[in-house]
Design a binder for these strands. Sequence first.
DNA 1: AAACCGTGGTT
DNA 2: TAACCAAGGTT
Length: 350
Amino acid sequence: MFDLAPDALAARLLAWYDAGHRDLPWRPAPGALGDPYRVWLSEVMLQQTTVAAVIPYYRAFLDRWPTVEALAAADDAEVMAAWAGLGYYSRARNLLACARAAAAAGGFPPTAAALAKLPGLGPYTAAAVAAIAFGEAAAAVDGNVERVLARLTDDATPLPAFKARARALAQALVPAARPGDFVQASIDLGATVCRPRNPDCLLCPWRDACRARTAGTVEARPVRPPKAARPHRLGTVYWVWSERGVWLVRRPEKGLLGGMLGLPTGEWRVGETRPRLAGAWAGTTLNRGVGHVFTHFSLDLAVVRVHIPHGTPEAEVAAAFGEGFWGTAADLDGLPTVMQKARKLAEETR
DNA sequence: AAACCGTGGTT
DNA sequence: TAACCAAGGTT
């Protein structure tokens, strides 16, 4: 399986980790267990998200909700607003659901198998929390570990099929002692040394055991399937304002930006704009629009400003733009990024 | 099982 | 600049 015994590989990796690793706010000291709440919070935030983006959110959440009980008692809208800008908003909804389940149960369960039943925890996150916070020898395989293991074994199995193989390899490597440090060390190795491009093989504790290095295939591992083309959509977003504020709507729980506050929009479609019928109000389309790129489509938005005369009943506004409320500046801060771009344009055009 | 789900940094 | 991709999970 490996060109070096698993325990020797693990020992080398841990020694490499001890000699100097990234100092991150959620990390326990080497050899120590982490606080389950903090480990879980950081792991959820780190799903498909860079460390640099997570750090300020992690600090803000921990400052505002120091314990899982505090988070469980939080208002949904406040948590969604605090998550605004971080992306993948289903994580925030699952975060709350998970916090409430854990708080009701008296804390997080201590095994990967039980953790994986909680909302928002899949195989990776459950294993990471089990290892880092509870000391279980669980195999946590993220994108970094996948890459490291594909190179170590020079495995040409394309993703996502390689994922299962990687878990078996990782399980064979995790030591009974310090499994949490092993998880973080293997992630650090992928993030700082065994990078997707320009890996620093000379700094790698596993360099002499790496089959891809011998074969000269390091940058070709892991093999990824070609990705689908990203369609381009057109749409309209409305800046509906009055003396009472800006009209904001709560988006449906599921789907794009699910559960988040938003500005009213029309449908976003490929090839054509589908404006909303803006009632009796004309509105002014701004000269510039908003460009944004989501995971599976890109978007150009026209921004339409609509002034609602003083004294207009809310029901009339709701009939035209959807159920909502007059939002203040503080409410607007809870909008996701694409909406913030529209807000910026609308506020500049005043 | 493949599609869906955000955003920002790097190259 | 456009592509790549990050401590993935859900349906």
